[in-house]
Design a protein around this nucleic acid. Structure first.
Length: 410
RNA sequence: GGUGGGAUAGUCAAGUGGCCAACGACGGCAGACUGUAAAUCUGCUCCCUAUGGGUUCAGAGGUUCGACUCCUCUUCCCACCA
């Protein structure tokens, strides 16, 4: 009897481990994770998992949700999540991934970003198992002496080993001294919070390891395990998903946008998204891949399923269903979409001006070019003359395949 | 603090007195094609009711008929030396 329970327990732990490891790029101190899970299954002991978020942008995108989904898995297996808002560190700007010194955010901007940020995060995370913490609560009160003590834990040579610093150094891109403080402060967060596990992107490796080093230096017996998730590529499939590059799918995107954006990724990238974003098991995904390979499954169908799953997660099944129908309508059958922004004009208006006013074109010059190339339609008919005027009436304006607006001229 | 080098459109990067609204690459937009907003191919890519006009090459002055190109100062960046 006793042995049987034991067996089941081991099985559960292994199952949990598999889920936690899925899609991860690297786990440092896997043993620690195993022990934490064991303690949870045997004694119901909880533990903490820290993840830092930079409130520099008010919106989360799918790149962030890769981490959030992983955190949710941890919550399923006994973790309390320390949802760390880098309210202090954001004022420095982490250099990661950007080869230019990031501009510093004001406190007001940060506060403004946070509430929308957390609302979005709780679409995935279990709020009752999450502690939101702000690092200026402890970093903000550090004295200069404390800072210097902290800084003495790291040598310049070691700092320069960090990939992006060394790249910037070699290519003569400026590095502000304050940027050196960033990994130290992030590491110190782990000291203060006594985190058991920290998760982050692979680009955070240096910072994550700094947490372990500092925990040791500050006398914490068991150092945090570190789990790194790969960086999700953006829609272009090359660069990491980021708002500033414009290659992102936002959590708060409309269902239609979300569906369409997922469908626009390349077939190769689709598998990557499946692995990191889908809740399908790895076996199921492998089967899909095999199906596409044998040509028994159409890649578009497979991609649609992914788009559906993701859209439904952030909206609803129904919304996803509608988005799918809408997409078919607009793109596959090139019909006009259901919801179109409406504008009015109070007098006769020049077509180019109208396109600019309806936010379909950035400038009248661009409008002219598109008209010349046959990219502009009024009521489904190509506009040939870039000098034409719109008189009283209602018009359906279209630029390219997917920009629409209704204009009413009075 | 000293010496030398640099700053060009969304990004990277040519251009060293007129032929420059400025080569090229990437990105972006449009067209064709397609299972898609994928891939591929083609065109476009400062603004302006435009076969013309206006404003650009870090900023401010200056030389010149004429400056992105030469001179002076300012700001910022980099390297070497301290």
């Amino acid at each position: 009897m006793h042995i049987k329970i034991k067996e089941r327990e081991i099985e559960m732990i292994n199952e949990a481990l598999r889920e936690i490891q899925r899609g991860s790029a690297e786990i440092i101190d896997n043993e620690r994770v195993e022990k934490l899970l064991k303690a949870y299954f045997e004694e119901g002991k909880t533990y903490t998992v820290k993840a830092g978020f930079d409130p520099t942008a008010p919106d989360l995108h799918l790149g962030h949700t890769v981490l959030l989904q992983k955190l949710a898995i941890f919550q399923k297996y006994g973790a309390r999540v320390q949802f760390l808002i880098g309210s202090f560190t954001a004022t420095i700007g982490d250099p990661t991934g950007k080869n230019i010194t990031r501009k510093v955010l004001s406190k007001e901007d940060i506060v403004k970003n946070i509430s929308s940020y957390t609302t979005q995060a709780f679409k995935i995370l279990d709020e009752s198992k999450t502690d939101i913490v702000y690092n200026d609560d402890w970093l903000g009160n550090m004295s200069a002496a404390d800072m210097i003590t902290l800084a003495s834990n790291l040598t310049v040579a070691r700092m320069l080993e960090r990939d992006d610093f060394s790249k910037r150094f070699k290519s003569n891109t400026p590095i502000a001294t304050s940027e050196f403080m960033y990994p130290l402060l992030q590491g110190y967060d782990s000291v203060y919070l006594k985190s058991d596990v920290e998760i982050g992107g692979t680009d955070q490796k240096f910072n994550l390891l700094m947490g372990r080093q500092l925990q040791k230096a500050y006398g914490i017996k068991k150092q945090q395990a570190v789990l790194m998730m790969p960086i999700l590529e953006g829609l272009d499939g090359v660069q990491k998903m980021s708002k500033s590059l414009g290659n992102y799918i936002g959590v708060s995107d409309t269902a239609n946008d979300m569906f369409g954006k997922v469908l626009s990724i390349s077939d190769d990238l689709m598998w990557r998204y499946y692995e990191l974003l889908s809740n399908k098991s790895l076996d199921e995904i492998a089967a899909l891949q095999q199906g596409v390979y044998d040509q028994t499954l159409h890649p578009k169908k497979v991609k649609e399923d992914l788009a559906f799953e993701i859209t439904a997660r952030f909206h609803s099944n129904e919304a996803a269903q509608n988005a799918k129908a809408e997409f078919e309508k607009v793109h596959a059958k090139s019909q006009i979409p259901t919801d179109i922004a409406e504008f009015t004009a109070s007098e006769d208006i020049w077509i180019c001006k109208a396109l600019v006013d309806c936010a379909l074109e950035p400038s009248t010059s661009q409008a002219r070019r598109d008209i010349k190339q046959g990219g502009v339609k009024i009521d489904q008919i190509k506009v040939l003359d870039d000098k034409s005027q719109l008189t009283i009436g209602e018009y359906l304006l279209q630029v390219g395949k997917r920009k629409f607006a209704k204009l009413k001229v009075n």
